[in-house]
Design a protein around this nucleic acid. Sequence first.
DNA 1: GTTTCCACTTGATCTCCGTCAAAGCACCTA
DNA 2: TAGGTGCTTTGACGGAGATCAAGTGGAAAC
Lengths: 247, 247
Amino acid sequence: MTIKAQFDHSNCADCPIRHRAVCARCDADELEALDAIKYYRSFEAGQTIIWSGDQMNFVGSVVSGIASLTQTMEDGRTQMVGLLLPSDFVGRPGRDVAPYDVQATTDVVMCCFRKKPFEELMDETPHIAHRLLQMTLDELDAAREWMLVLGRKTAREKIASLISIIARRDASIGQKGLSGQIVFDLPLTREAMADYLGLTLETVSRQISALKKDGLILLEGKRHVTIPDLGRLMEEAGDDSDGGFLV
Amino acid sequence: MTIKAQFDHSNCADCPIRHRAVCARCDADELEALDAIKYYRSFEAGQTIIWSGDQMNFVGSVVSGIASLTQTMEDGRTQMVGLLLPSDFVGRPGRDVAPYDVQATTDVVMCCFRKKPFEELMDETPHIAHRLLQMTLDELDAAREWMLVLGRKTAREKIASLISIIARRDASIGQKGLSGQIVFDLPLTREAMADYLGLTLETVSRQISALKKDGLILLEGKRHVTIPDLGRLMEEAGDDSDGGFLV
DNA sequence: GTTTCCACTTGATCTCCGTCAAAGCACCTA
DNA sequence: TAGGTGCTTTGACGGAGATCAAGTGGAAAC
């Protein structure tokens, strides 16, 4: 598995997280140009940010919280097709209509750019287009890896995959417990996990209980997780134990 | 569903199919520059074009035949994550290692560009980067739609989805029978279909037989398919009957 | 002609996961 | 304290699809 690149902002005194998505080099002029067309929007947990089929007049990135991309069938079956974590980008320069719902899974703050000016800026600034291409290719790889999870893994492996992915993503910005333990809170309800994994929430609950019984994870309450040995969990996920990805 | 954009080459006297992938406007200078760094490679059905983890020193597009992108787990389970049809692009400017196997499903001819020169050309030619970004976004959408198929559809719906997708993709360049009938040959073995759909080949065979029994498709031999009513087949696939995608 | 091979079909059985149903638990309001 | 609400857990059961195992048919090889 490939781990999504973390951008090095250590040299960027004036590079707020809200521009990480489009700014890898933190060019001052670009930041200024981006600042000129940006605005913020907040959403409550559960709120739909964009409906599938809607006109999309902005692009943007997640500043805080978690948003999800969801496909829906006519009869109501749904499949989550992506998770957007802070610094992830939403939107399609060059296309007007949203291909899936975007929902706020937790409370979300987004930094938006009006689409027209953003596209113009992209035309003038090859660096932004390149940056966007790299990000899109990363997401494509991640989507394809997720296809393996959806198509071929058992329920137990799916849960183990999801938990270890969240753990690694979280751990890279969060706290690491002593002796390699990883401690974090699941940011998703059982139902959201089921939507992401192509399972039912009952199966998710059962498999989490099973992993807990087998000592692969420890649970305090329903959300607070400790992973004593990430390697073992990843074996359980059927992964060759290196790297990882999300979205 | 969104249909992958077909490029209009009606005005392009000198635009061979081999450049459709990177050339939307058919700029003469760009074509010349691309011509200078291109070469052709042929592969036999079943051959592996690129192994996961290999160094990739070229990018390119499929000229004829069908290639597939495949993920493999340690224990041998596999999941096809994309089909490459003529004019589709392979490769990752900016990344060296292939994230999955690329295999020739039928005999394949590819038009390749050495990666280094191609990347340099991309730097000088914003148009190519834009074009590539659009293509990658299209593929991302397609991958995400396929996640819905893998995660939530029944075996019967999966088969109906795959057949109607191939039919539409084929029909757009192939022959249309009278009275809206679509006639074509399945370019995939039952096993390859199973790999793409997250099923076993036995289930694929059974579901194809079932669709045939129900009159949704007609079969002559094992591969030659007639679809009397595409709308009905797409309903069976659980699709809101518009558009379609592939790869 | 017949043998071999390979893709495919069909059948019998098993099992994992979905479905339906009930109950537990934390948190909020009154 | 009681009741409500939302999220979660657990149990019982059934079915869609996997697995194992023959068998078919058509084309190439001998």
